[in-house]
Design a protein around this nucleic acid. Structure first.
Lengths: 188, 188
DNA sequence: GTCTATACGAAGATAGAC
DNA sequence: GTCTATCTTCGTATAGAC
């Protein structure tokens, strides 16, 4: 596994950043070209179907980063509390403390649905499954675990929206501090 | 107060619907023209600054509808529980059971920030104040009430995102059933 | 007020040279 | 692989007739 990023991998990272800043409709080819430092034709070389392919690549890249930063720490060895701490730290990093949006939100708006149908659903499904598995391990029933996972994703997405709207990262930060308790506590 | 809507009021309603379906960037003048049944020039007659003015009008209209459906029932006479039931029913109606998005979300993405800065913030601020006031009345301290209101808006926005992404209104419905308890309970 | 017609730039996308 | 040049369609916006 090479540490040196290929030009395509670098491009995908830049594209993902651009989509998370501007949304699907707002991320024009000009912006994506500027963000990657590649001409439009070069982009079509890597992504023959244009913006649609770029969105898919960005979605897959985002999913992989979430796996790395959140899912893997949760599934690792060690005390559940420690793992949850690592996962929240990973979430904070991936969302830049609440300053960066989630593609699950952005890719369910406007043109994105037609261009990459099911992309957002597959992303949110993967996250829900992973969180439910941890919640089950924490002592919740299968049914409870599903609801807890859904609740966690709702609060994640909602806190990002509210943080964006208010121009403050505090809602996101408070959500992060609530998260471990939400998944851990069985009754109450 | 006339019951008969003026042409402009009808247009604003249609424009709001279109923005809530397509987002700011996705709602092109062609779509807005089709949605209102007005030619582009007629739209510019009512909204001299184009899309920007339309977004402001749509935001104000949405805020007014939320006041009518949610805030006023909350501030009315009667038992707190009854009022909360009316408010959740109002929320369900305004968001069409979870099928329609929130402009607070959509207007914080892409071009919308430049076109109508502060619009989303003013909308979310109004909602937060109203909810905090009710939470205080329900026995929460001023500080707690603010947090409870923020939590409610986070869950509202998050459940709408998750419902959209999953293609199911259940997350939104479950959020609605949690809402009264969230605002009412003082400890726990 | 509403329309038709039109201007003009930006959008997504492709051709072909290097 | 990356570029310049180009194409077409669509975007926002305006002029002016009715």
């Amino acid at each position: 596994m090479p540490v040196v990023k290929s030009s395509r991998e670098e491009a995908v990272d830049a594209i993902m950043r651009e989509f998370r800043m501007s949304g699907y409709d707002g991320a024009s080819l000009s912006r994506l070209s500027a963000a990657t430092g590649l001409g439009k034709s070069s982009l079509y070389h890597y992504f023959p179907n244009g913006k649609e392919d770029m969105a898919k690549a960005a979605g897959e890249r985002a999913a992989a980063l979430v796996v790395e930063a959140v899912i893997e720490p949760l599934a690792a060895e060690g005390a559940l509390k420690t793992r949850l701490q690592k996962a929240t730290a990973g979430l904070s990093k991936f969302y830049h403390g609440g300053k960066t949006s989630c593609l699950v939100d952005l890719f369910t708006i406007g043109e994105a649905n037609d261009a990459a149908p099911g992309l957002a659903k597959s992303m949110v499904d993967a996250l829900l499954r992973a969180l439910a598995s941890v919640a089950e391990e924490a002592g919740h029933s299968k049914k409870e675990a599903k609801l807890v996972a859904e609740q966690a994703v709702i609060e994640l997405e909602g806190s990002l929206v509210v943080s964006r709207a208010m121009g403050s990262t505090r809602p996101f930060q408070r959500m992060l501090s609530r998260l471990p308790g939400l998944i851990l506590k069985t009754s109450k």
